[in-house]
């Protein structure tokens, strides 16, 4: 199935668009979505460890299945808590 993911802040700037459409397996998990994002836009790979995924405005775990199919998916970079949009160095 095709899924459109909303992008914000550093993720939007990296991709250069406010959303990205990727191909997902029928029973894809959030982890699968991360892999699909990496394939669709390799420039996102360094950011991926810092990005959270939201399904219908709730933070999702990596093993969570992406159901229902019409869910609103979003990439959530680290929020503003005193830092900027700059990408943090890997731990």
């Amino acid at each position: 199935m095709k899924a459109t993911i909303l992008l914000f802040a550093s993720a939007r700037e990296t991709v250069g668009a406010p959303s990205l459409t990727v191909e997902l397996d029928e029973n894809s998990t959030v982890g699968g979505l991360r892999s699909a994002l990496a394939r669709a836009c390799p420039a996102l790979i360094p950011l991926l460890p810092f990005l959270r995924i939201a399904i219908d405005s709730e933070y999702a775990r990596n093993d969570q299945q992406i159901i229902p199919h019409d869910a609103e998916l979003a990439v959530i970079p680290p929020v503003s808590g005193g830092s900027s949009l700059e990408i943090p160095a890997p731990p």
Partner: peptide, 11 residues
């Protein structure tokens, strides 16, 4: 709020 609310800032 600063940890969980999806609001970002940029210089």
């Amino acid at each position: 709020l600063k940890e969980v609310v999806p609001i970002w800032k940029k210089d």
